[in-house]
Amino acid sequence: MGETTRRPDRRREIGRLGEDVAAEYIAGLGWTVLDRNWRTRYGELDLIAADGDTLVVVEVKTRASRTFDDPAAAVTPQKLRTMRRVTRQWLSEQDRFWPTIRFDIVSIRLDLADPDDLERATLAHHTGVVD
Rank of each mutant, 00 (worst) to 15 (best):
M1L: 09
G2I: 14
G2D: 12
G2W: 12
T5P: 02
R6P: 02
R6W: 12
R7S: 09
R7P: 03
P8R: 11
P8D: 10
P8S: 11
D9E: 12
D9G: 07
R11E: 13
R11G: 11
G15W: 03
E24G: 14
Y25D: 07
I26K: 02
I26A: 03
I26H: 01
A27N: 13
A27I: 15
G28Y: 11
L29Q: 15
W31P: 01
T32I: 14
V33E: 05
L34A: 14
D35G: 12
D35M: 13
R36P: 05
W38E: 06
R39G: 03
T40M: 11
T40Q: 11
G43M: 01
E44A: 11
E44D: 15
I48E: 02
A50C: 06
D51V: 05
D53W: 06
V57P: 00
V58P: 01
V58Q: 05
V58A: 09
E59Q: 13
V60E: 03
V60H: 05
V60K: 05
K61W: 01
K61D: 01
A64V: 04
T67I: 12
F68Q: 09
F68Y: 15
D70Q: 06
D70R: 13
A72Y: 00
A74T: 02
T76L: 11
T76E: 03
Q78C: 07
Q78G: 07
K79P: 00
L80S: 07
L80N: 07
R81E: 10
R81C: 09
R84P: 03
R88Q: 13
R88S: 14
Q89G: 05
Q89F: 05
Q89D: 15
Q89I: 04
W90L: 03
W90D: 07
L91H: 06
E93P: 02
Q94Y: 05
D95I: 05
D95R: 15
D95Q: 14
D95S: 15
D95M: 11
R96S: 06
R96E: 11
R96L: 08
R96P: 00
F97G: 06
F97T: 13
F97D: 12
P99L: 09
P99F: 10
I101K: 03
R102I: 06
F103G: 06
V106M: 05
S107G: 10
L110G: 00
D111W: 06
L112C: 10
P115V: 02
D116N: 08
D116Y: 07
D116L: 12
L118T: 07
R120C: 14
T122N: 02
L123V: 15
A124T: 15
A124Y: 09
H125A: 07
G128I: 08
V129W: 02
